[in-house]
Design a protein around this nucleic acid. Sequence first.
DNA 1: TTTGGATATCGACGTCCGTCAATAGGAGAG
DNA 2: CTCTCCTATTGACGGACGTCGATATCCAAA
Lengths: 120, 120
Amino acid sequence: MTARPTAHGSPQDEHVVVCALGSAPLTDAPLDEEDALALARVLAALADPVRLRLVSIVAAHGEVCSCDLEIPLARSQPTISHHTRVLAEAGVLVGEKRGRWTWWQVVPERLTELRRILGG
Amino acid sequence: MTARPTAHGSPQDEHVVVCALGSAPLTDAPLDEEDALALARVLAALADPVRLRLVSIVAAHGEVCSCDLEIPLARSQPTISHHTRVLAEAGVLVGEKRGRWTWWQVVPERLTELRRILGG
DNA sequence: TTTGGATATCGACGTCCGTCAATAGGAGAG
DNA sequence: CTCTCCTATTGACGGACGTCGATATCCAAA
């Protein structure tokens, strides 16, 4: 897997193509297919009630470990892991492994990009 | 269908529950399940490359009729009709029937709501 | 009224997604 | 090393979604 070692080994440094979302606001000019696909992928990651609540919980706490998400979201551990993975691949979350725990943070710049493309 | 007659008969005046999206920004406080579901529905409507390009085309022209969408989106007429319906039910588009044609416009307030909830 | 064109609905098909049980991988404690 | 706990992956199942052909509905022009 050609793991590139980092400070504490961020688990989604590899295999994650967080595309730049650099298109103009969609209210300004028609999106081409490539930009539309990239934007749709990020929106799809957020278009799930469990993932939205997950993001809001992480944002509210600043940093949250996976084990603290099972109870408030009422989902099994594999399902939580699935959702954090989807959000990380969309660039909305970043995770850092510390000891046995994985700590998740939101990426505010990603949400800023979204707000910009949504037509300001 | 108990059609309520309007000025020129807006086709999605009926059966469309455009919920208010009145929750606080998701970066401020955890979303409850109801708000998360409402937000997820709107995001899901936008989380499709064809619908994103559709919205951007309508926004760029200010007003567009369905028949002008088949060619640029390269989709069949039923598919276009399906997508406009989904976007209208999400409150992103409004349609007005004039003669034989349906003219679509974006609802800028809806995008503003989205930007607000996405954390500003 | 009849005809033609624009839009909406229906039914079907293939694919993708959310979910969980079972299992594997990893890291600290003893 | 072994044990235990936390996280990730796999495989499977049911439901939702995008798409199109066929059909229905609606409106205006002739």
